[in-house]
């Protein structure tokens, strides 16, 4: 099957530090692909190269046949790629509802629309969609709150709702459960499973192995900018190199 996202030969240096070293990755459509690896392995850097925050020094990133190199972040999103960041990036001064309506408008009306005359009060369809989405991530009752007042875990779920409301083709998640209590983590896993079952392709960075093994169809292991192993969850579990590099020899 042709991959939805194809990463070839990507290198990225920060000064003397080689953050990504000859990374190759194929993401199959309709799968959940987990990227794991120790702190500083280059996982977030890799996602940054997918969404236009960083440009690789060498290499190509292709999404559904479009090269993403040098596209602006909003252009990449308009192609159908949404991302949850490692530190939640939300519209802190706005209400939860507005936070979710904005990405919906972006998807519906494009990167710019001078929609200055119709009142928000009349946008019942958009409002309904946003409320539904917030309820899905468990923030339904909080929809009128200002986003800054949320806990870290809730901010993460809000950001997830902001991505999901766009019905992206590819969803990039940078540690979607970090900072969440166990119960919330399990809810998030269930939610992500539901999304995956709708056929949305996902790339998930996670440290929590429980999350990784409940979701992933395929796992890539990154260490010091290198992909050291790749395969189905069970193969990765037993791979001695992974245990060596990633867990210092401990059992996963």
């Amino acid at each position: 099957m042709a991959s939805i996202l194809s990463v070839q030969n990507v290198n990225k240096r920060f000064g003397g530090l080689k953050a990504l070293d000859e990374v190759n990755l194929e993401i199959e459509p309709g799968t959940v692909h987990a990227i794991i690896g120790p702190n500083g392995a280059g996982k977030s850097t890799l996602l940054n190269c997918f969404v236009g925050r960083l440009t690789p020094d060498v290499g190509t990133v292709t999404f559904e046949g479009h090269s993403l190199i040098r596209l602006a972040p909003h252009e990449i999103n308009q192609l159908g790629v949404s991302r949850v960041f490692q530190t939640p990036e939300i519209f802190g001064d706005l209400t939860l509802l507005e936070n979710v309506m904005i990405p919906y408008f972006a998807k519906r009306d494009g990167a710019f629309s001078l929609n200055a005359w119709k009142p928000m009060a009349g946008q019942n369809d958009v409002r309904g969609k946003a409320e539904e989405m917030l309820a899905d991530v468990g923030l339904g009752e909080k929809h009128a709150m200002v986003a800054n007042s949320l806990s870290r875990g809730d901010k993460r779920r809000l950001e997830l709702a902001m991505c999901l409301v766009q019905q992206p083709k590819l969803l990039l998640l940078d540690e979607p459960t970090a900072g969440m209590a166990r119960a919330d983590t399990n809810n998030t896993i269930d939610l992500l499973k539901t999304i995956a079952s709708r056929g949305i392709t996902m790339v998930v960075i996670e440290h929590d192995m429980h999350v990784v093994f409940s979701l992933a169809d395929k796992i890539s292991v990154l260490a010091q900018g290198y992909v050291i192993a790749e395969g189905a969850p069970n193969d990765i579990k037993g791979d001695p190199r992974v245990q060596e590099v990633y867990l210092g020899g401990a059992e996963i």
Binding site: G52, N77, E89, D93
Partner: peptide
Amino acid sequence: RAVKSIQNRMNYTGL
């Protein structure tokens, strides 16, 4: 108002 709040997020939201 979203521009005022955080421009980065707007860009990654497709705006």
